[in-house]
Design a protein around this nucleic acid. Structure first.
Lengths: 198, 198
DNA sequence: CGCCGCGTTGAGCCACGTCAACATAGGTGG
DNA sequence: CCACCTATGTTGACGTGGCTCAACGCGGCG
């Protein structure tokens, strides 16, 4: 297998769920492996070019990454966890039979691609705000929380600079739309529920 | 059927290929219809929001549009021809059986989404240049030609203004990387082959 | 002919990039 | 445990690329 940063809990020979911590690489382009479904967390996909890596896509809960391995045998993109991730193998055998699961994945990918495009339009503050909205998840108590990715990743996704993203995040905090929660890196949560309203 | 701008040549009851001319709408969001494979041309996909339509994706030769109708029965996006298009029905029955065709479509969609994202990064002139490269096709004599979309579409795709796109196109023409060909709107072709090299 | 949509181009301005200094947190070795 | 180092985030000052606004040209069409 390729360079992995968390233990792929193998039972017998079938790969099981993986947990990847924020910042770690999930897989490298060109290596072989299986397709995964993102159970939780956020994944940044990069395309390898002559001048390095370029942000090429975003995957969130429910999305499938690495489906191209079922065709080509290896990954086309490079995947990084930009939030603590839980991945489960995405079974080719079952889904190929049904076809509906594949269709659902295709439709989801197109919607996610539209989201990613929208994150690169509009003014800086709004882009960062919308990215935070996209990354937010509901807790049991009904409030939302998000794991803030590294600035460099937010900058790549929104096509802004780290400085600009930092300023936008500061403003969100000053406005009370984001609050730091504890000391764990990147973990914050909004105050009331109609937060992010602007 | 929904509002269509070209005749869907129906033989019996199975829809056949459609030809759509530049600027025309291919289908509207929410209407029912089938999935199509783009044989030639370029398609702009829009997502309907509260404030109107937002560019949400690009489809070029070989890409499939409207696959979500196989799941939901209606189109999620709105599709416009930004170049003269030839579409053929994308068969659900056959492909669902094979599964490989669906996978191929999925992999293609992800690559196209990465292309679309890349068109919103970098400086204005390079974005417009790369968009032209993406839209170019080879002729029999080995030279490339492209059908220039309307400025408003190029602006939406690159996330620039029409004025900025116009300036970039003027510069490409001044540099000899694009030449007008005849009088037909939007049809131009580059000079030698290593054009667009920059 | 007059209107309208589309493209082109100029002038001025501003949001964001650039650059740099500094703060802070984590990690590592002594 | 602290000393140090590095990676990351924050903030200010300043410059500029692209946006805004506007005028104008041109072709198509009623």
């Amino acid at each position: 297998m390729q360079a992995i940063s968390a233990v792929p809990v193998s039972e017998g020979s079938t790969p099981r769920s993986r947990r990847i911590s924020i910042g770690a690489r999930i897989y490298a382009a060109g290596t072989d492996g299986i397709a995964w479904r993102v159970k939780s967390g956020a994944v940044r996909l990069d395309r390898i070019t002559s001048e390095g890596r370029d942000y090429a896509g975003l995957a969130l809960s429910g999305d499938v990454i690495g489906a191209e391995t079922l065709l080509y045998g290896c990954y086309s993109f490079e995947a990084y966890a930009i939030g603590d991730c839980e991945l489960e193998p995405w079974l080719s055998a079952d889904t190929t039979l049904s076809g509906e699961s594949l269709l659902r994945t295709l439709a989801g990918a197109e919607r996610r691609a539209a989201d990613a495009l929208a994150l690169r339009a509009g003014e800086a503050f709004q882009r960062v705000r919308r990215l935070c909205l996209l990354l937010a998840r509901y807790r049991e108590d009904g409030r939302r929380e998000i794991t803030i990715p590294e600035l460099r990743d937010m900058a790549a996704i929104t096509n802004l600079t780290e400085a600009t993203v930092s300023r936008a995040m500061s403003r969100l905090r000053r406005m009370g739309l984001l609050q730091r929660q504890g000391h764990r890196r990147g973990l914050v949560l909004p105050g009331a529920d109609p937060v992010f309203a602007c």
